[in-house]
Amino acid sequence: MRLKEEVQGRISLREKSDRPEQLVQVKVAMATCGIASGAKQTMEFLIDELEKRNIEAVVTQTGCMGYCYAEPTIEVTLPGQEPVVFGEVDVRKADEIIEKYIKTGEFVDGIIPQNYETIDNQ
């Protein structure tokens, strides 16, 4: 199977880096609110594009972060930095986040402030 060989060669590189703290970590909120607003497309885009653009990253799912009004939301953690949550991340926004925030650390619009204690904890 040609596909298999092709793909396996490429990923062996990535799998070897077993230092997750050095990778960019992206969490996509995939609860009902996220799914209904297109989080699946956002997540697929992030997985594919980060790979294509040679950025070492792990993209995972998370539940609802409580910002249902701003779905799809994603949380990005750059190595050694505090996590940042972005709201209304469609494919276009995701592209901007990769190009600006992930690549250069420059903030983009759409950040949800970090004082995100839920009502229950206050």
Partner: peptide
Amino acid sequence: VLGGTPLHISEVRKF
């Protein structure tokens, strides 16, 4: 069928 090939690779998903 895929052997150890990870499923998250875009070509694999498309296939």
